[in-house]
Structure formats: C-alpha cells, structure tokens
Computed example of a mutant assay.
Amino acid sequence: MKQLAIIWHSMTGGSEALAQAAYDGARRVQGTDVRMLHAAEAGPEHMLSADGYLFLFPENLAAISGGMKSFFDRCYYPCLGALNGRPYAMIVCAGSDGRNAVAQAERIATGWRLRQILPTVIVCTHAQTQAAILAAKIIDVAQLSAAAEMGDQIATGLQMGIY
C-alpha cells in the first residue's frame, strides 16, 4: 500500500484547516495509507517510509514558518539521497505574498531531489495588521475544497502508480 505523508505546521489555524481538508480528500482514496503529521512530530523516519508528500505551512516574516523550518532542518541530512524522485506538492498560507516561503521550500525539495507533481498553491488571507495577523484564520470553502481535491489527486496518483 502506498503511503502519503501530509506534514503541516500552523500558527493561527489556516494551514491546519487546509491540511485537514487535504487529509479528508486523500482518505477518500482506497488503497492509500494517509498520515497527517504535525511538523513537530514528524521526523526522518516518516519521510523515509512515505511514498509521497504534501507540505502545508504558513509564511511568517516572508519565510517558512519556524515550526516547519525546524522539521526541514531535522530531516534534511538524514534523508539526503534517499528520497530521489518521490512526488510532492505544497500549500502555503500567507498574509499577502507567500512567494519567498515557496522559494525556500522548493529549494529544500530540490536538494532532496523530490519531484513536484502539482503547482504550489498560495492561500492568501490578506492579514496585514497586527490584530489580523495574530487572529485565528478562517479559510473559505472554495480553498478548503481545492485542498481536498489536491489530497485526493495525490493519493489517487500514488495508488495508481502515476507518481
């Protein structure tokens, strides 16, 4: 059975809601083991045992969130050279832009020699004030549905051997 690891970090709930939607979508696919792992709990063993990945995290200060960066730091060298060609996709929850966090994460994925199978999705919350940035994020239904579809698509591709 193919395994999909959905690895996420969230500060104010937006990335967590997107990860849950992706998980729910992926779980609809029979024959794929889907694991939803908080970045603080995920380690090299999870990366090495999975056949594909979906990374979800917020952009903080124009960078990968600290919790997700810690995950990448812990896993990078133990997994280097062992993940070549495995498929991945990403969703970044950002207040305005998200492109720098995407660029950072894509460089990490390139170092691991992962294969990007879907364009990275940036979900913009338009949080620009201190109060809005710190507030719990509510992700709209269309974006949650798109995350569910992404989870379903990745799980289906793994199960069918496309990825």
Rank of each mutant, 00 (worst) to 15 (best):
Q3S: 13
A5N: 11
I6L: 12
I6A: 06
S10T: 04
M11I: 12
M11H: 10
G13H: 02
L18Y: 04
Q20H: 15
A22E: 07
A22T: 00
Y23N: 09
R27F: 00
Q30I: 07
G31F: 03
T32E: 13
T32D: 05
D33M: 15
R35A: 12
R35E: 14
R35F: 06
H38Y: 10
A40S: 11
E41Y: 12
G43E: 12
P44I: 08
S49C: 10
A50H: 02
A50R: 09
D51H: 13
Y53V: 06
Y53D: 01
L54S: 08
L56K: 06
P58F: 05
E59L: 11
E59F: 08
N60W: 15
L61H: 15
A62W: 14
A63S: 15
I64W: 06
G66D: 07
S70H: 00
F71G: 07
R74C: 02
C75T: 15
Y77D: 14
C79S: 09
G81R: 00
G85E: 04
P87Q: 02
P87K: 00
A89N: 04
M90I: 04
C93V: 14
A94T: 02
A94M: 04
S96T: 13
R99H: 11
N100F: 06
A103E: 15
E106D: 14
R107D: 09
I108F: 09
I108Q: 06
A109V: 07
L118G: 10
L118V: 07
P119A: 12
P119Q: 06
T120C: 07
C124D: 15
Q128M: 09
A131E: 14
A132P: 02
A132W: 03
I133H: 07
I133Y: 13
I139A: 09
I139F: 10
I139T: 02
A142H: 04
A142K: 03
A142Q: 05
Q143N: 13
A148I: 03
A148R: 02
E149Y: 08
M150V: 09
D152G: 11
T156A: 14
T156L: 13
G161H: 04
I162F: 14
Y163V: 08
